[in-house]
Design a protein around this nucleic acid. Structure first.
Length: 853
RNA sequence: GCCGGGGUGUUGGAAUAGGUAGACAAUGGGGACUUAAAAUCCCCUGGGCUUUUGGCCCGUGCGGGUUCGAGUCCCGCCCCCGGCACCA
């Protein structure tokens, strides 16, 4: 860039020879110097290192820690700035604030870098962390860096392994062979939460089904509590709670035992027990073990086998496609309805999911849309057992199922019951006759945590030929991940090929045994890190009770919504498990949650391929961190997407430069010249009023996380100060101006900490702006002495009058009626008074005169 | 389809408890200062009408409703974004 172009427009003042800066050295705001100076002071003084202090109220503020990809992006900057603003505010208000940072540093990209570029995953990771840590420091975030946590360090993953063993002891870990989601590109299995529309959440590859022997965490044991406790999370966004509830997917219904050949029970799960008399067939999942039993040695064996074979070859994406056709085939057997006694054919269908419910469903074509289509397609009978209100349903007229509630008909003893009530009746009947039971089913499955990858925390289990599968004794932790192994794109993980790792001895019999070579899902690492920050140097334990008792739960957690179901669900589960073990003080990890929006440019998510990426280094280098912080807080409310705007950044730049001039200038401020007119209505009283109004407004906005409007209030205060400084010197009150400046700097400090610290120092106060604490407003100063009251006639604004604040309704009404405009509208007295139907007065705000028409 | 969120000037957004719609910015326009530019400062910037130093009408996705008064509450739609999706 041309140096002359950038010198005054851009901002740093380098090489500037003319303009305001040269007339008065104080005008020369140089963010680079100011920011380096204060970052150095904060580092040298360990300003933001916190210790437990029982005398102060604690506040634990956490942003989701990053994966060390190598480069900080603007989304991170926004996320962490929001957190830093609140942190600095809370600190100024006297809270003992824990605000830590760390690295979610296990995971695939490190391995891919090793494969693609021949860099060791550990080196790649440590280098990235070092670089990103420096980037974070450049933005002036007030982290307690002494508590930095790195999940890939043995001292951390020792805790992850300890957690695994704790869950194992508590019966929350098991191994089973089951069809799993296999990502062919990542060469590993994935948990259900990590598959989005049949694709891998990280790399978008189509996920395949593969049967594998895998470790699971029994999150389903906590399904009910994870769902019910959402109600306790008042501080969470609705959409996150909704997504979790949806994911958990609770269904209340009944399991009904149909009876097949040889009295074989075929349990089905339904939420519509009331339609039991409408069942005309059953459908089993292709994987259902009874299918094989039913068809063996019959004429149906070959065609059903062929059908199952065809279904099993379908990919996940075929099964979820819009065009997916419901297909089925008769097995040749019939089952008896335990309530009605009807005999119905048993089918196999490609749409029945073996893992959900009982893997078998009852077909009620009259009252289920999908069953209706299936029955039509295969010529199965349809029965009406629920009638609408006017009893007008006719089978021959039906072209769609009747799925609404109604009255039970043709339902034996239940006929005439309301269908909703009938549901409970049918369940009672089933239970009394031992042919079924009320049942609650959840969609959520257990959390598959095995990963066939190298760069992760080893699962601490041992396979002994004599003693079986055994946990590693806790005193032997950590099971150290060997570094420097050759990582290959295909085949077994390097751990499985590394003899020194695999071969071990049995902790029970001492004979030769083998280690588990799968590593843990990185989401396990991130499901407890917020406890580790409470005492990150603990070498004996993952965390000490006293530490988490002091700091936890997290008071405010900030991160992207992409983790609504994944990280946030896992973290809640782990917290509940730890709570049940008596190790942590609360059964929910995050009291309040803020999901910040994305940073977009030209309406699209930033990506290298679109070429619309903004580099934090570049923009901070050009304008300084404070400008970037202020822009990002101002441009949009935190939870909404933020449209990046170069113009907007320049606006923030102008604002901070103006504040600099206003504060560093003398009482004369702008050194007014002929053209510097202050505008209308500027007074010392007004200056003090807006100062106190700003303290009130900014404080309230920070409390409700409305950071954009807080910044706008700072701009209004600054605008007023600027105008005030343009009054003739004799009309200015230096004391009032000092008060206004001090308030402005204090209120600005959370948003633009460097410039605020520097200005505070230049104002000559003792101590730092943070040590000065948060300003208090005086309610008397906030109140306007005279207020503008709107005068409406029939709800339309017709005039505005000035009245003394707190005037009585009568006074205001009188004044309103007396105004020229209103008098004109009402016409001449005395008829005027008769026209008035009523008068509504809202104190100090509005008068509405309602007139008859 | 179900669940959640949203729709306000040219743009980002504000209006927190039903009470002045458009704060604060950005953009654009006009002016001051300057040899000039930058920077800075001042004014204007939703639409239409008008008898134009004044005033009127319309306007918060659409259509109704409640109310003295609706961006805000209620009913019915439309559209956009996000999540889930043969879950029985």
């Amino acid at each position: 860039m041309n140096k002359h172009d950038s010198c005054c427009a851009g901002g740093t003042g380098d090489g500037c020879i003319s303009g305001a800066a040269s007339r008065n050295g104080n005008y020369d705001y140089e963010p680079k110097q100011v920011e380096a100076k204060w970052q150095g002071i904060w580092r040298d003084n360990e300003t933001y290192v916190v210790t437990e202090d029982p005398l102060k109220p604690k506040y634990y503020l956490l942003e989701m820690f990053p994966y060390p990809s190598g480069e900080l992006h603007v989304g991170h900057v926004r996320n962490y700035t929001i957190g830093d603003v609140i942190t600095r505010y809370k600190r100024a208000r006297g809270y003992n604030v824990l605000h830590p940072m760390g690295w979610d540093s296990f995971g695939l990209p490190a391995e891919n870098a090793a494969i693609d570029r021949g860099i060791r995953p550990d080196k790649w990771t440590w280098d990235n962390i070092a670089h990103m840590r420096e980037q974070l420091k450049m933005i002036g975030f007030s982290y307690d860096w002494s508590r930095e946590v790195t999940t890939a360090f043995p001292e951390y993953y020792k805790g992850t392994q300890w957690l695994f063993l704790l869950l194992y002891e508590r019966g929350l870990v098991y191994k089973k062979t089951a069809p799993a989601n296999w990502c062919p590109k990542c060469h590993t299995v994935l948990a259900n939460e990590q598959v989005e529309q049949g694709k891998c959440w990280r790399c978008d590859s189509l996920v395949e089904r593969r049967s594998m022997d895998q470790w699971f965490f029994k999150i389903t044991d906590y399904a009910e509590r994870l769902l019910a406790d959402l109600d306790k999370l008042d501080g969470w966004p609705e959409h996150v709670k909704a997504m979790q509830a949806n994911w958990i997917g609770k269904s209340e219904g009944a399991e009904i035992d149909f009876v097949g050949p040889n009295d074989e029970k075929i349990p089905v799960f339904t939420t519509r027990q009331d339609t039991i008399y409408g069942v005309t067939y059953l459908v089993l999942a292709p994987e259902h073990p009874l299918v094989e039993k039913f068809i063996q040695g019959t004429e149906y064996e070959a065609p059903v086998r062929a059908f199952i074979d065809k279904v099993s070859k379908m990919s996940e994406i075929d099964r979820t496609a819009e065009t997916f056709e419901k297909e089925g085939i008769f097995t040749g057997v019939y089952a008896t309805n335990p309530v009605s006694g009807d005999k119905v054919p048993v089918w196999v269908g490609n749409y029945v999911i073996y893992e959900y419910g009982t893997g078998a469903v009852m077909g009620v074509p009259g009252h289920d849309e999908r069953d209706f289509h299936f029955a039509k397609k295969y010529g199965l009978p349809i029965k009406i057992v629920i009638q609408n209100e006017d009893q007008s349903l006719r089978l021959e007229e039906m072209d769609t199922a009747y799925v609404d509630p109604g009255i039970m008909v043709a339902s034996g003893p239940f006929t005439g019951l309301d269908s909703e009530a009938g549901r409970a009746q049918v369940t009672r009947f089933l239970e009394e006759n031992g042919t079924g039971r009320g049942k609650i089913t959840y969609k959520m499955r257990d959390w598959l945590i095995s990963r066939q990858r190298y760069w992760g925390a080893p699962i601490p289990m041992i396979y002994c030929p004599k003693c079986g599968t055994l946990p590693v004794p806790k005193e032997d932790l950590p099971v150290v991940l060997p570094l420097g192994l050759q990582v290959a794109p295909e085949g077994p993980s390097p751990l499985a090929r590394h003899e020194a790792f695999v071969n071990t001895t049995c902790p029970v019999c001492g004979e030769a045994a083998k280690r588990e070579t799968d590593t843990m899902d990185t989401f396990v690492c991130s499901s407890w890190y917020f406890f580790r920050y409470a005492g990150p140097h603990n070498t004996d334990e993952a965390f000490a009770k006293a530490d988490v008792d002091y700091w936890c739960p997290v008071d405010l957690y900030i991160g992207g919504v992409e983790h609504a179901v994944m990280h946030l669900l896992y973290a809640r589960f782990i917290t509940k498990a730890l709570y049940d073990a008596g190790l942590v003080p609360a059964d929910e990890p995050f009291t309040k949650m803020l999901t910040q929006g994305m940073v977009v440019r030209d309406g699209a998510k930033m990506s290298k391929s679109k070429g619309n990426v903004v580099s934090p280094d570049e923009i901070v280098g050009k304008f300084g961190a404070d400008v970037v912080r202020v822009f990002m807080m101002f441009a949009a409310p935190p939870e909404r997407d933020l449209e990046w705007s170069d113009r907007g950044v320049e606006g923030a730049n102008r604002f901070l430069r103006r504040v600099w001039r206003q504060v560093t200038g003398g009482p004369d401020g702008e050194q007014p010249e002929v053209n510097d007119a202050p505008g209308e209505g500027i007074s010392t009283e007004g200056l003090l009023r807006i100062t106190h109004q700003s303290i009130k407004k900014v404080t309230e906005d920070l409390e409700r996380l409305a950071l954009n409007t807080a910044v706008s209030q700072l701009m209004e205060l600054s605008n007023y100060i600027g105008r005030y400084q343009r009054l003739p010197g004799t009309s200015q009150s230096p004391e009032a101006l000092d008060e206004a400046k001090a308030a402005l700097v204090k209120l600005l400090a959370p948003f633009a900490p460097h410039i605020a610290h520097e200005l505070w120092e230049r104002l000559g106060y003792d101590g730092t702006v943070e040590e000065a604490g948060w300003p208090e407003y005086d309610p008397d100063m906030v109140a306007e002495r005279t207020v503008t009251v709107v005068v409406q006639v029939n709800g339309k604004v017709r005039d505005r009058i000035q009245v003394e604040a707190g005037s009585s309704d009568e006074e205001v009404t009188e004044k309103a009626l007396a105004s020229d405009r209103i008098a004109k509208l009402l016409g001449e007295a005395p008829e005027a008074k008769d026209k008035i139907a009523k008068v509504i007065v809202v104190k100090d705000k509005l008068v509405n005169i309602v007139i008859k028409r």
